[in-house]
Write a protein that binds this DNA or RNA. Structure first.
Lengths: 351, 351
DNA sequence: ACCGAAATTGTGACCGTTCACAAATGGAAT
DNA sequence: ATTCCATTTGTGAACGGTCACAATTTCGGT
């Protein structure tokens, strides 16, 4: 353990090993064409001195910055968002990304930007100039923001759009919302349900639309109607209450509800309870997101599991790989799964 | 909106404004001794070109890095931790820190290190060399790790230890665990409870000890015994189940339990229900942490609210302020509060 | 032993910014 | 006007790396 007083630079290593700076640089970066013998000698010096290249200096001299920038919404992130969808989403996203970055020698930096369009361009532009990241990850609701994607495309920085199903500039990382909704709906149909309602998310998120599509497609495939079975919320609890009430009032024969967020599902659970209906005996319930909360409700909810951590992780890997490559757009799907708990059961009156 | 092709450097601005690099630098950094007229002219050029100084270059030339490094435990963070204490802790910490950093023109970077002591020094040392942060935030269980604090002290990097009550090197940011436990216990005593048990956290976290102390002190002040009323868990659900069972079996006259984590409190809730006891009619329950989960249990739990976001936020501000100052150690307390919900009530048989 | 190409190593310039210091300018006092 | 000092501006040298390219070594084939 060498005692480190001042920062150890590549020069110190070069001197210690009796070689040139360039050689040390080659060893550090695993460059080719270094004789094994010399490489070992230099490596020994590096270890002895505890040398670690300075990220700042590396970036200065034209190499990569080894930074992935994750763009999050400032307002929604902390207050709004956590109230509505549970905090888990942000958490998983961060940790999935950070973990994967660290695995590849990269670092993830979180940048919070305002939703207000004027500022977005400014703020993001400043962040890009200051940090010069090798890649950017866009999270909802910025995943499909034209101004942002245009800015990134112009600067030729590879970027991934999380939770966006639409092809377009950058890499779209979808969690297969259409398919997931289809899966959940199909499962309910399989259990004998015929009147299956959906509480959708707000239209501003395109995933809301995709989930509705998946639900509708599954119903259509089974020859079931969807009229009057759709209500929209804003992912939050109160909106779920409203939607559930409307649905149950309008459709007394309802036997299943799919909610586009855990909070809205919990609200629906509360509403059904108030009306004297038992879940899952009288009504089955499936939620989206599968945050930790739904494991502790009575009963625990069956939920569509959005593989957020894995999605972000894959996004990071894509960006890193795109480092030198051409920036071909793509849509990558990470499949969602259905975690069956106790809020789903065969439809009433079924064998 | 100037169209940005290549990165705008300080040179471009200097040229555009017809001044020297140094002058631009002065304007950017709010340096003294620049004539207002010139300053405006330069500022105009900066705005027009959309210039933002490169963090890397700034760091290179001896200025600060404007980076705060938050050290988290790799294993516990993702898997273990979230299972045991709910994911909220990490989330709040990150966002509290990130938000505050961004407010001051700093950025927060999360570094995950292994718990295994050999690696910690290496990993952290590498991170410090690579990033050269202006400050470091240590989170449990690293807040009191000797190797880490020694390393930071040696490198003279200001650092804050979150959730540590003990004075020592660096700034200790305590959330007043002793006081919080005392507060919760006192409230129960006030409600007429006489047999108040505690499910403590694992000994490896010093906050566990402090919470026990606060509980004990409150009991002592009221002349109540604490013998046989203490069980320890590991913050996780299962351990809470075990502890609650042991406590209830050993003390049939128990009327209140304080749990050192939300998960353990939920477990205790489940156990009391199994035994035919109603909360809060027969038994009052208070948990620690106040993660979103406890709002959705039946009944919603009264909980000690750990002001994590604020604590980290304050820590960041301390570190930034310490930038140039002397590194005097300190213990700063951010008081916890009690959020009363429906799991606490007057003791059975009380007026 | 000799030649040439391939493999290995070294050299200088440069990345974008700030630092210490030198130069120029301004204004008050003489 | 002149002198002098304080204020304002400019200059060259770092900072710690990498890049392009030049110099050197190695080695197979003759």
């Amino acid at each position: 353990m060498a005692r480190v007083r001042k920062t150890v630079t590549i020069r110190d290593v070069a001197e210690d090993a009796g070689v040139s700076l360039q050689t040390v640089s080659r060893v550090v970066n695993g460059g080719p064409n270094v004789r094994p013998q010399l490489r070992d000698k230099v490596q020994a010096a590096i270890d002895r001195l505890g040398y670690v290249p300075s990220l700042a200096a590396q970036r200065m001299s034209g190499s990569r910055s080894y930074i992935i920038l994750a763009i999050n919404d400032r307002e929604r992130t902390l207050a709004d968002w956590r109230e509505r969808r549970g905090t888990d989403w942000v958490d998983q996203m961060l940790l999935g990304g950070i973990l994967t970055c660290s695995k590849h020698g990269y670092r993830m930096m979180v940048e919070l930007v305002d939703t207000h369009s004027d500022h977005v361009e400014r703020e993001l532009g400043a962040a890009l100039s200051a940090l010069q990241p090798d890649g950017v990850i866009l999270t909802p609701p910025h995943s499909e923001n034209r101004l942002i994607t245009a800015l990134l495309a112009e600067r030729k920085i590879p970027f991934a759009r999380i939770g966006s199903n639409a092809p377009g500039p950058g890499i779209a990382m979808t969690m297969g919302d259409e398919g997931a909704a289809h899966l959940a709906t199909s499962r309910l149909i399989e259990l004998g349900h015929r009147r299956i309602a959906m509480i959708a998310g707000p239209a501003q998120y395109s995933l809301s639309g995709w989930r509705v599509s998946g639900w509708r497609r599954a119903l259509a495939e089974a020859g079931l109607p969807h009229e009057g079975l759709l209500e929209a919320g804003d992912f939050g609890y109160e909106s779920g209450t409203r939607a559930a009430r409307a649905l149950l009032t309008r459709n007394p024969d309802l036997t299943a509800i799919i909610a586009s967020s855990d909070q809205m599902a919990l609200a629906a659970l509360e509403v059904t309870r108030d009306r004297g209906l038992a879940v899952p005996r009288d009504l089955s319930l499936i939620s989206f997101d599968n945050t930790p909360i739904v494991r502790f409700s009575q009963p625990p909810l069956t939920a569509v599991d959005q593989p957020i951590a894995e999605t972000v992780s894959r996004a990071v890997e894509q960006l890193i790989a795109r480092g030198e490559e051409r920036d071909d757009d793509a849509v990558i799907e990470v499949a969602a799964g259905l975690v069956e708990r106790s809020s789903t059961a065969p439809a009433p009156g079924t064998a």
